Amino acid sequence: MSKMHATVDAVTARIIERSKPGRQAYLDLIAKQRDAGVNRPALSCGNLAHGFAASGEDKPAIRGGKAMNIGIVSAYNDMLSAHQPYGRYPEQMKIFAREVGATAQVAGAVPAMCDGVTQGQDSMELSLFSRDVIAMATAVGLSHGMFESVAMLGICDKIVPGLLIGALRFGHLPTILVPAGPMPSGLANKEKQRVRQLYAEG
């Protein structure tokens, strides 16, 4: 194994030292929330009733608080071809959860933009900003104290980091990211590139 370059080593050491207070505060928060457990059993009747009002046949299990409840955060929309498989995932996940004695609820959806659609448009300036919005939306979806674990549905370079950043606020909950994979458009990348070049040339 090659030795780390001295400059990289020094910068890494500075980052570790500088981030100690913030990192320790985060670790303390996660330990405290882990030890406190999930809030669902402690929610008032009104809060809890709102939490499972739309859950159909899963209401008794969620109300009873005896089964694991999985919070689903989805980045699905009809604009991202790679997200197309996610359209039916939540309903399937609810069925699979019931089969093992658990429940699943969609905790929230995040606004996931497609760079492929916005390239060359004024709106492409929102691309980097969207990561922070996704992180905030993820945290909002998980803030209700209803879940023992998290399943995140999303793929793409801004969406995945946003989901993970938001989920880290709830680092005491077991979390899994479910990538959907590509959806072929029927056009080879070289052909797309050729058409875009022709369009750019007018």
Rank of each mutant, 00 (worst) to 15 (best):
M68G: 09
E148Y: 06
R34Y: 11
E201P: 00
G166E: 08
K32N: 09
N189C: 07
T12C: 10
P179R: 07
E125Q: 13
V150A: 07
T175W: 01
Q197M: 11
A102T: 02
M79H: 15
Q92G: 01
R88G: 14
R98M: 00
P179H: 07
L126F: 14
H5Q: 11
S81Y: 09
P41C: 03
A61Y: 11
A10W: 09
D78Y: 04
P111R: 13
G181M: 04
F96S: 00
R169Q: 12
Q33N: 15
G64N: 10
P85Y: 11
K66L: 12
A151V: 15
R169L: 06
K158D: 02
D35N: 13
K94Q: 08
S2F: 12
R18F: 10
R196W: 13
M152L: 15
L128T: 09
D78M: 06
I30P: 09
A151F: 06
V178T: 08
H5V: 00
S127A: 15
N69I: 03
M79L: 14
T103Q: 09
A104R: 04
H83Y: 15
I95E: 11
D58A: 13
R169G: 03
P182G: 06
G51H: 01
A36C: 06
R63T: 13
F170G: 04
Y199G: 01
M124T: 05
M124P: 00
P161S: 03
V100L: 09
N77W: 07
S185L: 12
I72R: 09
G64K: 04
T175Y: 00
G141D: 00
A135S: 14
M152Q: 01
Q121N: 09
R34G: 09
G141R: 07
I155E: 10
S123A: 15
R131I: 01
E57W: 02
E17M: 06
M136L: 11
A75W: 01
R14P: 00
L187M: 10
S127G: 11
T138R: 01
F147N: 08
G64Y: 07
P85W: 05
S130I: 05
G56D: 05
K192F: 08
A10L: 15
G154E: 03
Q33R: 15
M183D: 00
G87R: 12
I70T: 13
G22N: 06
A97L: 02
L198C: 03
F52M: 10
P41M: 00
A112Q: 05
R131E: 08
A54W: 12
F170C: 01
T103F: 02
L142T: 07
K20N: 04
G145W: 05
R18Q: 13
S127W: 05
F147Y: 15
L128Y: 11
H172K: 00
K66N: 14
M68T: 15
G64L: 04
G65P: 05
L198V: 09
G154K: 00
L80H: 08
M1W: 05
R40I: 05
S130T: 06
A135C: 10
I30E: 10
A112F: 10
F129Y: 07
Q193D: 15
